[in-house]
């Protein structure tokens, strides 16, 4: 097997997967990585910030990838790490950054009883599935993949032999699926421009049209007591211009303390 994965660590990791009962190394790996994977999965669901969720999920998937390698699936394990944690999760992060306006969920559940019921049903299903599997399979022994891997001279040749013989049709269909998905994503992400691009003339006419201000917008803090971005500009007639500050910024009224002279001339700021 070492000729498949030349790195000595890989050989040691693979050695953990013994054909019969699990060895001590595998036990340790399972309990450590299993608890991490489960904990990160729960944390992913529980985290308010979507970015945190994504990172927790990366950890879980990484653990799972290691589990695959331990269980004599080095190819599938590496694919898991590269494709999932590497590619797919990065795509998630990318989209999260694009859609980043509401990265965090509010804690108020809008559907009455949805959270309680969801957790209860999840727990019930986990209990049923886990209990059922444990009871049905009990402490069966694994046959191990030594023989299967050895038939074609290794895990990757074995997988390749299966994929291009028995599963070749499914393989070809997945290629069609991937093409379709790529085209679909392009179509969905494409933005059609409505009408012709505006000419300079039109832009100029719009600028001087009724109800528009041809002059540049006043910057925040102009003629105001403070030059903070949260302080709206004061127009020549004394009113405040809502257009001068970003809609994202909460307008702020200055307190008496804020407007008190700060003795900057005398240099005695802290008397």
């Amino acid at each position: 097997m070492t000729h498949v994965l030349a790195h000595p660590l890989a050989g040691q990791v693979l050695a953990l997967a013994s054909p019969g009962a699990m060895g001590t190394g595998e036990k340790v790996a399972f309990w450590v990585l299993g608890i991490i994977a489960l904990g990160c999965a729960i944390a992913m669901v529980a985290a308010r910030n979507a970015m945190h969720s994504a990172l927790f999920l990366v950890v879980t998937m990484f653990c799972l990838g290691i589990f695959y390698i331990i269980q004599a699936g080095p190819f599938i394990g590496m694919a898991q790490i590269i494709v999932y944690t590497g590619a797919i999760m990065m795509l998630f992060l990318f989209v999260l950054m694009l859609v980043g306006r509401d990265v965090s969920d509010s804690l108020i559940e809008t559907l009455r009883g949805q959270r309680t019921a969801g957790i209860l049903v999840g727990l019930g299903l986990a209990g049923l599935l886990g209990g059922g599997i444990a009871r049905a399979l009990g402490s069966i022994d694994a046959k191990g993949l030594e023989q299967a891997n050895a038939t074609h001279g290794g895990n990757v040749p074995g997988l390749a032999a299966l994929m291009f013989t028995r599963y070749v049709f499914a393989f070809e269909v997945t290629s069609a699926l991937l093409i379709t998905a790529a085209v679909g994503a392009m179509i969905l992400a494409h933005v059609q421009r409505n009408g012709e691009k505006k000419t300079q003339k039109e832009q100029s006419r719009e600028r001087f049209a009724e109800g528009n201000h041809p002059a540049p917008k006043a910057g925040p803090g102009v003629f105001a007591h403070s030059n903070s971005v949260a302080t709206p500009a004061i127009l020549p007639d004394g009113t405040r211009s809502a257009r001068s500050i970003s809609p994202l910024v909460e307008p702020r009224e200055l307190t008496a303390e804020d407007t008190r002279p700060k003795d900057t001339l005398t240099g005695g700021g802290n008397q």
Binding site: L111, Q114, A117, G118, V121, G122, G124, L125, L128, L129, G132, R135, A136
Partner: peptide, 24 residues
């Protein structure tokens, strides 16, 4: 969508429970 998902999962729970009650 989440209400529907809850219903689906509840249904799955019932199916699994019934399957186990019969098989096991």
């Amino acid at each position: 969508v989440r209400s529907y998902a809850l219903t689906i999962l509840g249904g799955a729970l019932v199916v699994v429970a019934a399957l186990m009650a019969v098989k096991l």
